[in-house]
Design a protein around this nucleic acid. Structure first.
Length: 361
DNA sequence: AATGCGGGGTT
DNA sequence: AACCCAGCATT
């Protein structure tokens, strides 16, 4: 079977079965870019509503460039991989300042922008500007690995290169955007990871994996890294004044999880510890050392499972009667009724919802 | 070349 | 519990 025939079969399949998605049917590179960033490592159904809200809130590259970082992060809250939002914001500002608000039209230029890698550059170039750049995402890797029997690990240079080579042979030079979306939709709907729907597959007779009964053996990945645990001990300080209740939170700025989101004063340890141990080891010294406080309670540690980490978070509620210099220097004093104005990690958001919002405190 | 970065659905 | 999603940046 010639590659051009495979391409035609994929596009024919797509024209009948393609999904109706909010970013389809536009050629606005801004909206296509936003959709592609949101969909990095993110399922369609998870990203769909975020996309609609995001482009409503920031309708063009200028409104995004003019927004504050906190506004952007707030729109991104809960979606994960928060550097995407920050990089997008940076790139919007770059586009306004250095590109007159216009996207470059080819992959080589696009990839120079923050947050745009090989996949997104090819996606925007092909879908928005009809440039023949083949996308390689998780779907494409799976489809091509099975179709051509690529048995090298796709997450290593050799395997990656083999995939790209096939992708560039298969792409439709006359309709690159359509082809790219076709093979991705096909991977998402037919050639799925588990129990692919080979009986519905229009190219099964051409498929190496189908003929050799190796569908469940492809694609091949190298060994995943081991998961690690992190133990997060949060101090939920409550400062009651005459009128309002306050707590203290911090904008996370390090290159670590949840950058640019807010959390409570954090004491991280190598192993699970009680509040008493935190006190005994002096870990609370900076925050509570010279302040009179009253320990209220500790919440059952919350387990928060991520792809490559398991977080165990405990929340220790402490009443304080006045603030101190360390708190003033390193934390934001936040009115408890206004916490939800801040961009929060999912874990913190869940705790806040359970602890503060009922008829508590 | 290896590691870190989120959250959630599917199996 | 493992897998993996329209990946990218950093070291």
């Amino acid at each position: 079977m010639k590659d051009t025939a495979l391409t035609k079969k994929l596009i024919s399949w797509y024209q009948v079965h393609k999904r109706d998605l909010p970013w389809r049917g536009t050629s606005d590179p801004y909206k296509i870019w936003v959709s592609e960033i949101i969909l990095q490592q993110t399922r369609i159904e998870q990203g769909r509503d975020y996309f609609l809200r995001f482009v409503k809130f920031f309708p063009d590259v200028f409104s995004l460039a003019n927004a504050s970082r906190d506004e952007v992060m707030k729109q991104w809250q809960g979606l994960g991989y928060y550097s995407r939002a920050n990089n997008m914001h940076e790139t919007a500002k770059t586009l306004v300042k250095e590109y007159r608000g216009k996207f470059p039209e080819n992959a080589v230029e696009l990839i120079k922008l923050k947050g745009i890698g090989p996949y997104t550059a090819a996606a925007v170039a092909s879908i928005a500007f009809d440039k023949p750049a083949a996308v390689v995402d998780g779907n494409v890797i799976r489809v091509l690995s099975r179709l051509f029997g690529i048995e090298k690990a796709y997450d290593r240079p050799e395997g990656k290169q083999a995939i790209h080579k096939k992708a560039n042979k298969l792409i439709d030079q006359n309709a690159p955007g359509t082809y790219n979306q076709a093979i991705m939709d096909f991977g998402a709907m037919i050639c799925v990871p588990k129990n692919p729907l080979c009986h519905k597959c229009p190219i099964k007779e051409d498929c190496f994996a189908f003929r050799k009964e190796k569908v469940d053996l492809l694609p091949v990945a190298s060994k995943p890294a081991q998961k690690k645990n992190r133990y997060l001990n949060y101090l939920v300080l409550i400062l009651k004044t005459g009128k309002d209740d306050y707590t203290f939170m911090k904008l996370r700025t390090e290159n670590d999880i949840w950058k640019n989101l807010h959390d409570f004063p954090l004491l991280e340890t190598k192993s699970p510890v009680s509040f008493k141990t935190l006190l005994r080891k002096g870990l609370t010294a900076d925050i509570l050392g010279k302040t009179s406080f009253r320990y209220i309670e500790s919440h059952m540690p919350l387990k928060h499972q991520l792809t490559h980490r398991t977080l165990y978070a405990s929340f220790h509620v402490v009443h304080i009667h006045q603030t101190n210099q360390y708190l003033n220097r390193h934390f934001k004093k936040v009115k408890i009724s206004a916490i939800d104005q801040l961009a929060l990690p999912r874990l913190i958001d869940r705790f806040v919802e359970n602890f503060f919002s009922p008829n508590n405190s």
